[in-house]
Simulated scan of single mutants.
Amino acid sequence: MTMNETTAPGAVDDVIDAFFAERIARADRLAPSYAALWRRAAEASLGGKRLRPRLLLAAHDALGGGDRVSALTAAAAFELLHTALLLHDDVLDGDLVRRGRPNLAGGFAADALDDGLGGAAASAWGEASGLLAGDVLISAVHALVARLETPARRAVHEIVDDSLFVTAAGEHADVGFGLGAIPASAADIVRMMEQKTASYSFAAPLRAAAAIAEAGPDVDGALHRVGTQLGFLYQLRDDVLGVFGAEERTGKSVLGDLREGKRTLLIAFAEEQPAWRRVRHLFGRRSLEADDAARLRDALLACGAAEEIERLIDEHRGQACRDIEDASLPAPLRRELVALAHRIAERDG
């Protein structure tokens, strides 16, 4: 298989579906509302690009791995980890929509409102449900990894644990930057981006594939470095799409990052420019409307920040491709990773 596939690997979806069916059946015996939590968690896992499973499976195959069952199970675990972190991210950001539809927190809050609960209580119920759903899915990740029948099981557990540890550092910094609780230089923002996205989305699935394929420490190190670069590139494009993207393609509101006051390199590049200073008071305003968001976007274009980010994306794409070509990896995997770097840099959703 290759990372060029546009649909999710069916066998990975089968593992995920079977896991959710088992958990929903167990939850049904405890409480209807808890079973609803698991059903909505299952729904939250639908509709994604399945980037992490595709990455893990393609790397496993290119490295000559012969344990397809373990690779499929690990791939499903990383998709559940992604879903868990999205659920937590939505709660932290106060978002109620994901992939173009109400997210888990939004669904529980809407149901509570329909049942006559007050607005504040309904919102709290939605947030608590989103938080708990993310918690149980993180536990589910380790439960799935525990099922691996491979000597690499412990190594994959440690890779998951390390990626979560690093990702939490990045998420904590991201929230702190947005609230003004932590000062944020451009270097701080770069470090946050590498921690928040690169570790669990790219480096960890690649390293897990290498562990299952018994590829050795040199390959693990190379994939860690390459994965971090790809993740940084992905987050650069993601930050642009968060402001200038099309909602029908990204599945997220293009007002969210502006309302949140999200500290990105795009904003860091703009901050000292006169065009941005004139509208900076609108940035981070929770009541931000479309017209004022358009003023912020116009300022980011006028001051050159958007152009600077595009230049940075091209620069890092070129560096990532050169480093991939120089890595001690099989030629087919190098080709796949170079192609992935180009798709990440050029994506619109």
Results as ranks from 00 to 15, higher is better:
residue 45 S to F: 00
residue 249 R to V: 01
residue 83 T to N: 03
residue 137 L to T: 07
residue 255 L to K: 03
residue 193 M to D: 15
residue 54 R to F: 11
residue 337 L to M: 12
residue 217 P to K: 07
residue 78 F to R: 12
residue 316 H to Q: 11
residue 289 E to W: 03
residue 284 G to H: 07
residue 69 V to H: 15
residue 47 G to L: 13
residue 191 R to Y: 07
residue 125 W to E: 09
residue 3 M to S: 10
residue 199 S to G: 06
residue 145 V to F: 01
residue 222 A to L: 05
residue 193 M to S: 15
residue 55 L to N: 01
residue 13 D to L: 14
residue 248 E to W: 03
residue 213 A to E: 01
residue 312 L to Q: 07
residue 223 L to S: 06
residue 20 F to D: 13
residue 261 G to M: 07
residue 7 T to G: 11
residue 90 D to T: 01
residue 156 V to P: 07
residue 89 D to L: 00
residue 257 D to Q: 00
residue 309 I to R: 03
residue 128 A to V: 12
residue 135 D to H: 09
residue 74 A to R: 03
residue 285 R to L: 08
residue 85 L to G: 06
residue 22 E to C: 07
residue 44 A to N: 00
residue 262 K to R: 13
residue 282 L to R: 15
residue 299 A to G: 06
residue 25 A to T: 14
residue 77 A to F: 11
residue 35 A to S: 14
residue 189 I to E: 14
residue 1 M to N: 08
residue 270 A to Q: 05
residue 92 L to P: 04
residue 123 S to N: 13
residue 159 I to V: 14
residue 37 L to I: 07
residue 227 G to F: 07
residue 106 G to K: 10
residue 170 G to D: 08
residue 143 A to I: 05
residue 86 L to S: 02
residue 311 R to T: 13
residue 95 D to H: 08
residue 260 E to R: 13
residue 296 L to W: 12
residue 35 A to Q: 08
residue 46 L to E: 15
residue 129 S to L: 10
residue 227 G to A: 04
residue 142 H to S: 12
residue 163 S to N: 03
residue 102 P to R: 06
residue 128 A to N: 15
residue 172 H to M: 14
residue 306 A to K: 10
residue 54 R to S: 08
residue 292 D to F: 03
residue 303 C to N: 05
residue 286 R to V: 02
residue 164 L to Y: 04
residue 301 L to Q: 09
residue 308 E to T: 14
residue 244 F to C: 01
residue 235 Q to L: 04
residue 334 R to V: 07
residue 27 A to V: 10
residue 58 A to Y: 02
residue 54 R to M: 15
residue 70 S to F: 02
residue 103 N to I: 08
residue 110 A to S: 13
residue 236 L to N: 01
residue 146 A to E: 09
residue 228 T to C: 08
residue 113 L to S: 08
residue 61 D to L: 13
residue 189 I to F: 01
residue 302 A to M: 11
residue 271 E to Q: 06
residue 249 R to H: 12
residue 19 F to E: 10
residue 1 M to P: 15
residue 8 A to Y: 10
residue 256 G to T: 14
residue 182 I to D: 02
residue 325 E to P: 03
residue 12 V to H: 09
residue 140 A to Y: 02
residue 70 S to R: 04
residue 49 K to A: 05
residue 99 R to K: 05
residue 292 D to G: 14
residue 203 A to L: 10
residue 141 V to D: 01
residue 13 D to Y: 11
residue 217 P to Q: 13
residue 316 H to T: 06
residue 111 D to W: 03
residue 263 R to N: 06
residue 297 R to S: 01
residue 21 A to I: 11
residue 175 V to P: 00
residue 243 V to F: 09
residue 76 A to D: 10
residue 328 S to W: 07
residue 160 V to S: 04
residue 189 I to S: 02
residue 335 R to N: 13
residue 303 C to F: 03
residue 148 L to P: 14
residue 260 E to D: 05
residue 41 A to M: 04
residue 109 A to Q: 12
residue 204 A to H: 00
residue 23 R to F: 02
residue 266 L to D: 03
residue 335 R to L: 13
residue 127 E to T: 15
residue 87 L to C: 12
residue 45 S to V: 00
residue 256 G to R: 03
residue 198 A to L: 05
residue 80 L to C: 11
residue 310 E to R: 13
residue 206 L to M: 14
